[in-house]
């Protein structure tokens, strides 16, 4: 895990595929890259088998670009659509058993700190709503209560997408799906509130129709997780197959859902605010200048 792992071994450069050579020479490793430069550099994410027009893929693409130090990052995932794209990125990817991704990430994060000391090595969990809120719920919550220092990102498509459309805890009440024909009878789980109760230092919701916001949120979450504690991002990443969204309307749907139930929210603990300000120069959390006092009329 360092810049060395993407360099060519001596004498092998000419045998490497074009995509790999482009990534080493023109990729984001060791550089400051932003979403505004997309289309002008070789991305870490390669071709993948995700469905055409998938919003989850777009979010994963943006998230990977937003990693502050991709050469020092490990992603952890579990069963679900997302792993089909995450595993096609030139970043080490650990594929846990279903639901144990936050347990794996806890051990990994601690091990990396023992091995590398203060040198930042970022661990980012990206798993679906089923892996995070249902099957992995116990390990997710306990990692938060233990204040494990890594980022958890829920790719919330509100359904078990690649097993045929079963309802998940994150499906909306009343939603009718192929494998939930009577409609879901319970409310969508409030994972945001649970993350706050469990002590996460940073909690945010985001929708991929605002790439700059996705970039900003991911960067903050990963940086805070380096030293302060657990961070959680919940991203709406629609399943256009199970919800029958025409592919050219995926962003329109994202906008509708953003206005309906996925407005941007961001919680930053006081400790995290102080850390971002002092360590990384964020100005958003500086104390606001006091308003000038109202003029006191002179007594005649």
């Amino acid at each position: 895990m360092s810049l060395d792992y993407v360099k060519f071994s001596g004498g092998f450069e000419k045998f490497m595929p074009k995509e790999y050579r482009d990534m080493v020479e023109h990729g984001p490793f060791g550089k400051k890259i932003s979403v505004s430069q997309m289309g002008s550099f070789k991305e870490i994410l390669e071709e993948h088998p995700m469905c055409a027009g998938c919003a989850m893929t777009l979010f994963i693409r943006l998230a990977i670009i937003a990693f502050p130090n991709p050469e020092d990052t490990i992603t952890v995932g579990t069963a679900g659509c997302g792993r089909l794209a995450i595993s096609q990125a030139a970043i080490p990817f650990v594929y846990g058993n279903y639901g144990d991704q936050n347990g794996v990430a806890s051990g990994l994060s601690r091990g990396l700190r023992l091995r590398f000391g203060d040198k930042p090595k970022d661990v980012v969990v990206m798993a679906g709503d089923g892996g995070t809120a249902d099957i992995g719920f116990q390990q997710v919550l306990h990692s938060w209560f233990r204040k494990e220092r890594f980022t958890t990102i829920m790719l919330d498509n509100e359904v078990y997408g690649n097993t045929g459309g079963q309802e998940s805890g994150m499906t909306n009440r009343g939603a009718v799906l192929k494998m939930a024909p009577l409609g879901k009878k319970f409310e969508k789980m409030d994972m945001l509130q649970m993350a706050k109760v469990a002590g996460c230092a940073y909690v945010a919701t985001v929708v991929p129709n605002n790439p700059r916001r996705v970039e900003s949120v991911i960067k903050k979450a990963v940086l805070i997780a380096r030293e302060v504690g657990s961070t959680y991002i919940q991203a709406y990443t629609s399943c256009n197959i199970e919800y029958a969204i025409p592919t050219d309307k995926v962003m329109e749907d994202a906008k509708t859902v953003e206005n309906d139930r996925y407005q941007f929210t961001e919680y930053v603990s006081d400790e995290a605010k102080q850390y971002l300000t002092e360590r990384y120069g964020y100005k958003d959390y500086l104390p606001k200048a006091a308003a000038p006092a109202a003029a006191i009329p002179n007594k005649a």
């Binding site: 979403v35 289309g39 991305e43 998938c54 777009l58 790439p211």
Partner: peptide, 16 residues
């Protein structure tokens, strides 16, 4: 505007 480069779900598909 370069917006399309930021919204394609496929990496390195809409280039600039």
């Amino acid at each position: 505007c370069k917006l399309c480069t930021q919204y394609c779900p496929e990496a390195n598909t809409i280039q600039y």
